[in-house]
Design a protein around this nucleic acid. Structure first.
Length: 313
DNA sequence: TCGATTTGACCCCA
DNA sequence: TGGGGTCAAATCGA
């Protein structure tokens, strides 16, 4: 949980930094303001995800086979670090269910797949960073669904498994195409308990750890020590496509509409008495990153080759 | 129109 | 050789 707290603090820090330069940004560089706001959204999303995964770990442990708190304190998120394992989970009967081998073969195929070229050996990747957890179904009306784990997943396959009443579903991270996020998961209902899902995670999420540099006030001054950085950033911002104005962020007395382009950004529509809280509220209720964030990630990839090293942090 | 889901087929590995 | 993982075209839905 320390990690989540740290990420929240980071996000708040970014928010304060942005506030300090808000008047200048809103008047002179509304597009940079947009980029900064989206960076902060990403930071808050990191924190939200951290909290979700930690909470889910605890729920899973409580539901099945709670063990000593010392084992529970393992701070890593839900199996997204390569090579991690969660040896504390078990079924009610006592037999450990966590494994790196229950999923009979490893995830993955050579990027681009298909029948052309060489394929990466599945066996070679077996057991690497795979984590299996069992989670209770979330019942919504007559439906039972696997609980949300804080990420957005795209289903890419479903397979009937021999000996299982229920098919296994295959998911990959929605942001794979934009940010090369290789996180995947398998979801299967248990024969013995249809209200329980076995979820196997593999791969590390990179989509929630955007390293897109925050637009700092120093970049906006005439003394900009890195004019090339500013030029790259303006270039990137100029390419951000318009998205529907579904997300508005209030900063101080300024409502910033994340879905507007430069001409429409920075519109003042009302005062705020607690800008940081307003911003956090908007972010925590805005759901996971949308198309605008995808655009940022995409642009970041385009500029990875030329982005100055000293702005990586 | 575009993104997500479905589903049949292909390929790898035990 | 068959099971499991993935691809990709078809379909669906907002």
């Amino acid at each position: 949980m320390d990690r989540a707290i740290s990420q929240i603090l980071d996000a708040c820090k970014l928010t304060h930094e942005l506030e300090a330069s808000l008047p200048h940004l809103a008047n002179q560089h509304p597009s940079l303001l947009k980029t900064s706001c989206e960076n902060i959204v990403a930071a808050f999303n990191n924190a939200i995800h951290e909290i979700n995964t930690q909470q889910q770990q605890i729920q899973a442990m409580d539901f099945f086979s709670p063990r000593s708190i010392e084992e529970h304190n393992n701070p890593f998120p839900l199996g997204f670090d390569a090579g991690c394992e969660m040896p504390f989970l078990g079924v009610s009967g006592g037999e450990a269910v966590v494994d790196g081998s229950s999923a009979s073969s490893a995830f993955g195929r050579r990027p681009g797949g298909g029948s052309t070229g060489q394929r990466q050996s599945r066996k070679r990747r077996e057991n690497r960073g795979m984590t299996t957890v069992r989670v209770p179904a979330v019942r919504t009306g007559n439906m039972e669904n696997p609980p949300d784990d804080g990420y957005t997943w795209r289903k890419y396959g479903q397979k009937d498994i021999l000996g299982s009443r229920f098919p296994r579903s295959y998911f990959r991270c929605t942001h794979k195409s934009f940010y090369g996020c290789d996180a995947k998961k398998q979801v299967q209902r248990l024969d013995e308990d249809p209200y329980t899902y076995e979820v196997t995670y593999c791969g590390d999420h990179t989509c929630h750890t955007s390293t897109t540099p925050l637009v700092l006030p120093s970049l906006l001054t005439n003394n900009d020590p890195q004019p090339q950085t500013s030029a790259l950033m303006f270039d990137a911002i100029a390419q951000i496509p318009q998205v529907p104005p579904s997300t508005s962020i209030q900063l101080g007395s300024t409502w910033f509409d994340a879905g507007r382009d430069e001409a429409g950004a920075g519109q003042v529509v009302g005062p705020s008495e607690c800008p940081v809280a307003d911003l956090a509220d908007v972010m925590f209720n805005s759901g996971s990153s949308g198309s605008s964030m995808d655009a940022i990630f995409s642009l970041r990839q385009q500029h990875d080759q030329s982005w100055p090293k000293d702005n990586e942090e």
